[in-house]
């Protein structure tokens, strides 16, 4: 099963992360991407064009400012050719997200919230954030399930 492999890979990465402090991979790309599996460090993700997005969320108050890379930039950087992304979180939560959503909306993989690095002890290392304040149709519980926090792996199908 692909997902078990992803999780295994993520666990290995995390184990590695504990020992090596400098360049710890925080995200694994598998499936229909160029050179899969790809392990990405924080600095690799920061090398992608960075975007800011201020939006309300269903689990916080106010409108925090998120900062990170556009999901579509990440997928095109690694020549993804799938239509669905299986997003996997640290706690094994997983959900299918259609790639078309990343094209239609400026969905970001947030690395920072209000200038603070997102920590795995909160919703880090990566939180998928939708511009829900800019699009009425995103204010729907069916989209809330795609706001994956503690994202550690993406499998493109």
């Amino acid at each position: 099963m692909a997902t078990t492999q992803i999780i295994a890979a993520a666990l290995v990465l995390l184990a590695v992360a504990r020992t090596a402090t400098a360049e710890i991979p925080i995200l694994t790309l598998t499936g229909a991407v160029n050179g899969a599996p790809v392990s990405l460090t924080r600095s690799a993700l920061k090398d992608l064009p960075q975007h800011e997005l201020a939006t309300s969320t269903s689990v916080t108050d106010g409108t925090p400012v998120f900062e990170g890379f556009l999901m579509r930039d990440l997928l095109s950087e690694y020549q993804s050719s799938g239509e669905t992304v299986v997003a996997v979180a640290l706690n094994d939560y997983q959900i299918n997200i259609p790639v078309s959503g990343f094209e239609r909306f400026d969905v970001i993989g947030a690395l920072y919230k209000d200038g603070q690095t997102l920590s795995p002890r909160d919703k880090g290392p990566i939180w998928i954030v939708y511009p829900r304040d800019d699009h009425g149709e995103l204010q729907d519980i069916r989209y809330d399930t795609r706001w994956v926090w503690q994202l550690v792996a993406l499998h493109v199908e």
């Binding site: 666990l11 002890r121 919703k123």
Partner: peptide, 10 residues
């Protein structure tokens, strides 16, 4: 243990 610690704290 470290992973579970983080998750619980999160």
């Amino acid at each position: 243990i470290a992973r579970r610690f983080d998750l619980t704290l999160a």
